[in-house]
Protein backbone atom coordinates (compact mmCIF):
# COMPACT_ATOMS: atom_id res chain seq x y z
CA UNK A 1 0.00 0.00 0.00
CA UNK A 2 1.45 3.29 -1.07
CA UNK A 3 0.68 6.13 1.29
CA UNK A 4 -0.85 9.37 0.20
CA UNK A 5 1.72 12.17 -0.13
CA UNK A 6 1.42 14.88 2.48
CA UNK A 7 0.44 17.61 0.06
CA UNK A 8 -2.49 15.69 -1.35
CA UNK A 9 -5.86 16.47 0.16
CA UNK A 10 -7.76 13.74 1.98
CA UNK A 11 -10.13 11.97 -0.43
CA UNK A 12 -13.79 12.82 0.08
CA UNK A 13 -16.18 10.06 1.04
CA UNK A 14 -18.25 10.77 -2.04
CA UNK A 15 -15.27 10.68 -4.37
CA UNK A 16 -13.98 7.48 -2.87
CA UNK A 17 -17.38 5.80 -3.10
CA UNK A 18 -17.83 6.87 -6.69
CA UNK A 19 -14.40 5.58 -7.63
CA UNK A 20 -15.04 2.24 -5.94
CA UNK A 21 -18.40 1.84 -7.66
CA UNK A 22 -17.02 2.71 -11.10
CA UNK A 23 -14.01 0.40 -10.79
CA UNK A 24 -16.16 -2.42 -9.45
CA UNK A 25 -18.55 -2.06 -12.37
CA UNK A 26 -15.66 -2.11 -14.83
CA UNK A 27 -14.19 -5.26 -13.32
CA UNK A 28 -17.63 -6.90 -13.24
CA UNK A 29 -18.23 -6.03 -16.89
CA UNK A 30 -15.06 -7.92 -17.76
CA UNK A 31 -15.48 -10.87 -15.43
CA UNK A 32 -19.22 -11.52 -15.23
CA UNK A 33 -19.72 -12.70 -18.85
CA UNK A 34 -16.84 -15.12 -18.41
CA UNK A 35 -18.29 -16.36 -15.13
CA UNK A 36 -21.69 -17.01 -16.69
CA UNK A 37 -20.21 -18.82 -19.68
CA UNK A 38 -17.92 -21.01 -17.56
CA UNK A 39 -20.71 -21.82 -15.13
CA UNK A 40 -23.15 -22.75 -17.89
CA UNK A 41 -20.56 -24.99 -19.53
CA UNK A 42 -20.24 -26.85 -16.24
CA UNK A 43 -23.98 -27.22 -15.65
CA UNK A 44 -26.15 -30.22 -16.38
CA UNK A 45 -28.82 -30.01 -19.08
CA UNK A 46 -31.44 -29.90 -16.34
CA UNK A 47 -29.79 -26.94 -14.63
CA UNK A 48 -29.62 -25.10 -17.95
CA UNK A 49 -33.32 -25.74 -18.63
CA UNK A 50 -34.26 -24.63 -15.14
CA UNK A 51 -32.28 -21.44 -15.51
CA UNK A 52 -34.04 -20.83 -18.81
CA UNK A 53 -30.74 -20.39 -20.61
CA UNK A 54 -27.47 -19.19 -19.18
CA UNK A 55 -26.87 -20.23 -15.62
CA UNK A 56 -26.09 -17.37 -13.27
CA UNK A 57 -26.22 -19.21 -9.95
CA UNK A 58 -24.38 -22.50 -9.46
CA UNK A 59 -26.80 -25.46 -9.47
CA UNK A 60 -26.25 -29.00 -10.59
CA UNK A 61 -22.73 -29.29 -12.04
CA UNK A 62 -21.18 -31.80 -14.42
CA UNK A 63 -18.33 -32.21 -16.86
CA UNK A 64 -20.56 -33.82 -19.50
CA UNK A 65 -20.09 -31.01 -21.98
CA UNK A 66 -16.32 -31.38 -21.88
CA UNK A 67 -16.52 -35.16 -22.13
CA UNK A 68 -18.63 -34.72 -25.23
CA UNK A 69 -16.19 -32.23 -26.77
CA UNK A 70 -13.04 -34.22 -26.10
CA UNK A 71 -14.54 -37.58 -26.95
CA UNK A 72 -13.09 -37.21 -30.45
CA UNK A 73 -14.79 -35.42 -33.29
CA UNK A 74 -14.87 -31.91 -34.63
CA UNK A 75 -13.78 -29.96 -31.57
CA UNK A 76 -11.04 -32.37 -30.52
CA UNK A 77 -9.57 -32.16 -33.99
CA UNK A 78 -9.83 -28.36 -34.09
CA UNK A 79 -8.07 -28.08 -30.73
CA UNK A 80 -5.25 -30.23 -32.07
CA UNK A 81 -4.98 -28.12 -35.22
CA UNK A 82 -4.95 -24.85 -33.28
CA UNK A 83 -2.44 -26.17 -30.76
CA UNK A 84 -0.12 -27.41 -33.49
CA UNK A 85 -0.29 -24.18 -35.46
CA UNK A 86 0.25 -22.16 -32.28
CA UNK A 87 3.25 -24.17 -31.06
CA UNK A 88 5.01 -24.43 -34.42
CA UNK A 89 4.13 -20.87 -35.41
CA UNK A 90 5.24 -19.32 -32.13
CA UNK A 91 8.56 -21.17 -32.15
CA UNK A 92 9.24 -20.14 -35.73
CA UNK A 93 8.14 -16.55 -35.21
CA UNK A 94 10.20 -16.13 -32.07
CA UNK A 95 13.29 -17.58 -33.71
CA UNK A 96 12.96 -15.40 -36.81
CA UNK A 97 12.17 -12.28 -34.81
CA UNK A 98 14.97 -12.70 -32.29
CA UNK A 99 17.53 -13.36 -35.04
CA UNK A 100 16.43 -10.43 -37.18
CA UNK A 101 16.09 -8.09 -34.19
CA UNK A 102 19.63 -8.88 -33.14
CA UNK A 103 20.88 -8.71 -36.71
CA UNK A 104 19.46 -5.22 -37.01
CA UNK A 105 20.51 -4.02 -33.56
CA UNK A 106 23.90 -2.62 -34.57
CA UNK A 107 23.71 0.65 -36.48
CA UNK A 108 26.43 0.93 -39.09
CA UNK A 109 26.47 -2.75 -40.01
CA UNK A 110 26.19 -3.74 -43.67
CA UNK A 111 22.75 -2.96 -45.14
CA UNK A 112 21.49 -2.02 -41.67
CA UNK A 113 19.49 0.99 -42.79
CA UNK A 114 17.83 -0.39 -45.93
CA UNK A 115 16.84 -3.66 -44.23
CA UNK A 116 15.41 -1.87 -41.21
CA UNK A 117 13.59 0.44 -43.57
CA UNK A 118 11.98 -2.58 -45.28
CA UNK A 119 10.44 -3.55 -41.97
CA UNK A 120 9.42 -0.05 -40.92
CA UNK A 121 7.74 0.61 -44.27
CA UNK A 122 5.21 -2.14 -43.51
CA UNK A 123 3.70 0.17 -40.88
CA UNK A 124 2.61 2.57 -43.60
CA UNK A 125 0.72 0.25 -45.90
CA UNK A 126 -0.53 -3.30 -46.17
CA UNK A 127 -0.54 -5.14 -49.49
CA UNK A 128 -4.28 -5.74 -49.47
CA UNK A 129 -6.36 -8.85 -49.16
CA UNK A 130 -6.62 -9.90 -52.79
CA UNK A 131 -2.92 -9.85 -53.77
CA UNK A 132 -2.08 -11.58 -50.47
CA UNK A 133 -4.61 -14.28 -51.22
CA UNK A 134 -3.25 -14.71 -54.73
CA UNK A 135 0.35 -15.15 -53.56
CA UNK A 136 -0.68 -17.76 -50.99
CA UNK A 137 -2.57 -19.58 -53.70
CA UNK A 138 0.31 -19.23 -56.14
CA UNK A 139 2.62 -20.88 -53.60
CA UNK A 140 0.20 -23.80 -53.30
CA UNK A 141 -0.49 -23.13 -49.63
CA UNK A 142 -4.28 -23.18 -49.82
CA UNK A 143 -5.52 -25.84 -47.38
CA UNK A 144 -2.02 -26.14 -45.93
CA UNK A 145 -1.42 -25.30 -42.28
CA UNK A 146 1.59 -23.25 -43.39
CA UNK A 147 -0.84 -20.70 -44.81
CA UNK A 148 -1.81 -19.97 -41.19
CA UNK A 149 1.82 -19.51 -40.17
CA UNK A 150 4.08 -18.12 -42.88
CA UNK A 151 2.18 -14.95 -43.92
CA UNK A 152 2.05 -13.73 -40.31
CA UNK A 153 5.30 -15.27 -39.10
CA UNK A 154 7.22 -12.01 -38.71
CA UNK A 155 5.50 -8.99 -37.23
CA UNK A 156 7.41 -5.79 -37.85
CA UNK A 157 5.98 -4.36 -34.64
CA UNK A 158 7.29 -7.21 -32.50
CA UNK A 159 10.61 -7.00 -34.27
CA UNK A 160 10.96 -3.30 -33.54
CA UNK A 161 10.06 -3.83 -29.87
CA UNK A 162 12.61 -6.59 -29.55
CA UNK A 163 15.28 -4.61 -31.38
CA UNK A 164 14.75 -1.60 -29.13
CA UNK A 165 15.24 -3.87 -26.14
CA UNK A 166 18.45 -5.38 -27.54
CA UNK A 167 19.81 -1.94 -28.26
CA UNK A 168 19.36 -1.00 -24.61
CA UNK A 169 21.77 -3.71 -23.51
CA UNK A 170 24.98 -1.90 -22.54
CA UNK A 171 27.42 -1.96 -25.45
CA UNK A 172 30.40 -2.69 -23.19
CA UNK A 173 29.04 -6.14 -22.34
CA UNK A 174 28.78 -7.11 -26.00
CA UNK A 175 32.04 -5.45 -27.00
CA UNK A 176 34.04 -7.34 -24.42
CA UNK A 177 32.56 -10.62 -25.65
CA UNK A 178 33.48 -9.66 -29.19
CA UNK A 179 37.03 -8.83 -28.19
CA UNK A 180 37.21 -12.27 -26.62
CA UNK A 181 36.42 -13.63 -30.07
CA UNK A 182 32.82 -14.78 -29.53
CA UNK A 183 30.74 -15.02 -32.71
CA UNK A 184 27.50 -13.06 -32.98
CA UNK A 185 25.45 -16.25 -32.79
CA UNK A 186 27.22 -17.12 -29.57
CA UNK A 187 26.77 -13.64 -28.13
CA UNK A 188 23.07 -13.74 -28.94
CA UNK A 189 22.61 -17.16 -27.43
CA UNK A 190 24.84 -16.82 -24.36
CA UNK A 191 24.58 -13.15 -23.42
CA UNK A 192 21.71 -11.34 -25.08
CA UNK A 193 18.96 -13.94 -24.76
CA UNK A 194 19.49 -14.64 -21.05
CA UNK A 195 19.20 -10.90 -20.46
CA UNK A 196 15.98 -10.71 -22.47
CA UNK A 197 13.69 -13.26 -20.87
CA UNK A 198 10.96 -10.74 -20.12
CA UNK A 199 10.71 -9.29 -23.57
CA UNK A 200 10.91 -12.77 -25.11
CA UNK A 201 8.02 -13.92 -22.93
CA UNK A 202 5.88 -10.94 -23.92
CA UNK A 203 6.63 -11.21 -27.63
CA UNK A 204 6.08 -14.96 -27.41
CA UNK A 205 2.67 -14.33 -25.87
CA UNK A 206 1.80 -11.87 -28.63
CA UNK A 207 2.68 -14.40 -31.30
CA UNK A 208 1.03 -17.33 -29.52
CA UNK A 209 -2.19 -15.41 -28.98
CA UNK A 210 -2.09 -14.28 -32.60
CA UNK A 211 -1.84 -17.87 -33.85
CA UNK A 212 -4.38 -19.23 -31.41
CA UNK A 213 -6.85 -16.50 -32.35
CA UNK A 214 -6.11 -16.59 -36.07
CA UNK A 215 -9.45 -16.47 -37.73
CA UNK A 216 -9.54 -14.57 -40.93
CA UNK A 217 -6.53 -16.19 -42.56
CA UNK A 218 -8.22 -19.51 -41.91
CA UNK A 219 -11.43 -18.24 -43.52
CA UNK A 220 -9.41 -17.23 -46.57
CA UNK A 221 -6.96 -20.06 -46.90
CA UNK A 222 -8.50 -23.19 -45.37
CA UNK A 223 -11.43 -24.47 -47.40
CA UNK A 224 -11.28 -28.03 -46.13
CA UNK A 225 -13.38 -27.98 -42.96
CA UNK A 226 -11.61 -31.02 -41.53
CA UNK A 227 -8.57 -28.76 -41.19
CA UNK A 228 -10.36 -25.91 -39.48
CA UNK A 229 -8.76 -24.34 -36.43
CA UNK A 230 -10.79 -23.79 -33.28
CA UNK A 231 -11.82 -20.21 -34.04
CA UNK A 232 -13.73 -21.32 -37.14
CA UNK A 233 -15.46 -24.05 -35.13
CA UNK A 234 -16.35 -21.42 -32.56
CA UNK A 235 -17.92 -19.30 -35.26
CA UNK A 236 -19.86 -22.12 -36.85
CA UNK A 237 -21.23 -23.80 -33.75
CA UNK A 238 -21.50 -20.94 -31.31
CA UNK A 239 -21.88 -17.71 -33.22
CA UNK A 240 -23.88 -19.14 -36.11
CA UNK A 241 -25.59 -21.64 -33.83
CA UNK A 242 -25.11 -24.81 -35.83
CA UNK A 243 -25.72 -28.00 -33.86
CA UNK A 244 -22.68 -29.99 -32.92
CA UNK A 245 -24.75 -33.05 -32.05
CA UNK A 246 -27.28 -33.68 -34.84
CA UNK A 247 -30.90 -34.70 -34.37
CA UNK A 248 -31.48 -32.81 -31.20
CA UNK A 249 -34.48 -30.62 -30.81
CA UNK A 250 -34.71 -27.29 -29.16
CA UNK A 251 -35.70 -27.62 -25.52
CA UNK A 252 -38.93 -25.97 -24.42
CA UNK A 253 -38.74 -24.11 -21.16
CA UNK A 254 -41.42 -23.33 -18.65
CA UNK A 255 -41.54 -19.75 -19.86
CA UNK A 256 -42.73 -21.06 -23.22
CA UNK A 257 -39.82 -20.25 -25.50
CA UNK A 258 -37.40 -22.57 -27.19
CA UNK A 259 -33.90 -22.91 -25.87
CA UNK A 260 -31.02 -23.82 -28.17
CA UNK A 261 -30.01 -27.41 -27.47
CA UNK A 262 -26.64 -28.16 -25.96
CA UNK A 263 -26.14 -24.71 -24.59
CA UNK A 264 -23.63 -26.16 -22.14
CA UNK A 265 -21.62 -27.65 -25.01
CA UNK A 266 -21.63 -24.35 -26.86
CA UNK A 267 -20.39 -22.57 -23.78
CA UNK A 268 -17.76 -25.27 -23.32
CA UNK A 269 -16.41 -24.50 -26.81
CA UNK A 270 -16.05 -20.86 -25.77
CA UNK A 271 -14.22 -21.93 -22.62
CA UNK A 272 -11.88 -24.19 -24.59
CA UNK A 273 -10.99 -21.25 -26.83
CA UNK A 274 -10.53 -19.06 -23.77
CA UNK A 275 -8.55 -21.26 -21.41
CA UNK A 276 -5.09 -21.22 -23.06
CA UNK A 277 -5.13 -17.44 -23.07
CA UNK A 278 -6.22 -17.33 -19.43
CA UNK A 279 -3.54 -19.84 -18.47
CA UNK A 280 -0.56 -18.13 -20.07
CA UNK A 281 -1.68 -14.59 -19.37
CA UNK A 282 -0.85 -14.32 -15.63
CA UNK A 283 2.73 -15.46 -16.23
CA UNK A 284 3.33 -12.76 -18.78
CA UNK A 285 1.19 -10.00 -17.36
CA UNK A 286 3.77 -8.84 -14.84
CA UNK A 287 6.12 -8.01 -17.68
CA UNK A 288 3.62 -5.54 -19.15
CA UNK A 289 3.80 -3.44 -16.03
CA UNK A 290 7.56 -3.77 -15.89
CA UNK A 291 7.56 -1.56 -18.89
CA UNK A 292 9.03 -3.92 -21.47
CA UNK A 293 6.54 -2.82 -24.06
CA UNK A 294 6.19 0.74 -22.91
CA UNK A 295 9.91 1.45 -23.08
CA UNK A 296 10.01 0.12 -26.59
CA UNK A 297 6.95 2.03 -27.72
CA UNK A 298 8.33 5.26 -26.40
CA UNK A 299 11.80 4.70 -27.79
Amino acid sequence: MTTRPVWQERPTVFGLTLKTVVLTLIVLAMVYPLYVVVLTSLSTARAVTEAGGLVTLPGELSLDAYRELFGGGVVTRAVLVSTGVTVVGTALSLALTILAAYGLSRPGSVLHRPLLFLFLLTFLFTPGMIPSYLIVRELGLIDSYWSLILPTAVSAFNLVVMRAFFMNIPGEVLDSARIDGASDFRILWRIVLPMSKGVTAVIGLFYAVGYWNAFFNAVLYINDNTKWPLQLILRQYVQQGMNLVPNQRAVDTAAGYALPPNLAIKMAIIVVALVPVLLIYPFVQRHFTKGVIIGAVKG
Binding site: L96, T97, L99, A100, Y102, G103, L104, R106, S109, V110, L111, L115, F119, V154, L159, S183, D184, F185, L188
Partner: peptide, 11 residues
Amino acid sequence: DWQLLAMTIPA
Protein backbone atom coordinates in the same frame (compact mmCIF):
# COMPACT_ATOMS: atom_id res chain seq x y z
CA ASP B 1 28.87 -8.32 -40.24
CA TRP B 2 28.05 -11.42 -42.29
CA GLN B 3 26.60 -13.15 -39.24
CA LEU B 4 24.27 -10.24 -38.58
CA LEU B 5 23.15 -10.37 -42.21
CA ALA B 6 22.63 -14.11 -42.07
CA MET B 7 20.42 -13.64 -39.01
CA THR B 8 18.28 -11.04 -40.71
CA ILE B 9 17.86 -12.71 -44.10
CA PRO B 10 15.17 -15.33 -43.19
CA ALA B 11 12.81 -12.71 -41.78
